[in-house]
Amino acid sequence: MKNFLLTCLIVGVSLGTYAQTELSYHGKKINEKGAIPAAQLPAKMGNKEKMPAKVEGTVEDVCKMKGCWMKVKTADGQTMRVTFKDYGFFVPKDIVGKTVVVEGTAETTTTPVDELRHYAEDAGKSKEEIAKITEPEKALTFVADGVIVKK
């Protein structure tokens, strides 16, 4: 009986560990079906200012304060800032290098200097680096309804 209980415990812990290593969901529960590589998103956007999209990419940076934004690699060494709809959820702070699927709205936006400085502060940048931010940034951004983090 003791061996049976010990075996059940080991199997249960193993399955729990396995389940945690697969996927984690944040925000609206989405699936991976139909996601395009992040490198293809700029071309799909073309001249559109806004469009719904589902994108898969690699996390390059994440908010160190509470996981309230992340940057995903796109084409040619560029990144796309991903924020979360209505500030309604966050992602883990330790997902740099992991693959994510995001579903929501891709937009071409201009981010003002004060907001860029805020993001730099959240990312743990030095005061000198933050002071160098003096121009607004026009870039591809993404507002996610849901995120899947692949572990």
Rank of each mutant, 00 (worst) to 15 (best):
M1H: 08
M1F: 07
M1D: 02
M1T: 03
K2W: 00
L6Q: 05
C8P: 00
I10N: 05
L15K: 04
L15D: 00
Y18N: 02
A19E: 05
A19H: 09
L23Q: 15
S24N: 11
G27S: 06
K28C: 00
K28G: 01
K29R: 14
E32V: 12
K33D: 04
K33E: 09
A35G: 07
A35Q: 08
I36H: 05
A39G: 04
A39M: 11
A39K: 15
A39P: 04
A43R: 07
K44H: 02
K44I: 03
K44F: 02
M45F: 07
G46Y: 10
E49P: 02
E49N: 14
K50Q: 09
K50G: 00
M51G: 02
P52F: 07
A53D: 04
V55L: 11
E56I: 13
E56K: 15
T58F: 07
T58P: 03
K64S: 12
K64F: 02
K64W: 01
G67P: 09
C68W: 13
K71Y: 10
K71M: 15
T74D: 06
G77K: 13
Q78Y: 12
T79K: 13
M80L: 09
V82N: 08
V82K: 12
V82C: 08
V82L: 09
T83V: 15
F84C: 07
F84R: 08
K85G: 00
G88A: 14
F89T: 01
V91F: 00
P92D: 01
P92W: 00
D94G: 03
I95N: 06
V96S: 13
V96E: 13
K98C: 01
T99A: 04
V101K: 07
V102Y: 08
E103F: 06
G104M: 11
G104F: 10
T105R: 04
T105A: 05
A106C: 06
A106H: 05
A106F: 05
T109N: 13
T110M: 12
T111K: 12
E115A: 14
L116F: 08
L116G: 09
R117L: 04
R117W: 03
D122P: 01
K125I: 05
S126L: 13
K127F: 05
E128N: 15
E128K: 15
K132H: 11
I133C: 14
P136A: 10
P136Y: 10
E137F: 10
E137Y: 12
E137S: 14
K138Y: 03
K138S: 14
L140R: 09
T141H: 03
V143M: 09
V143R: 08
D145V: 07
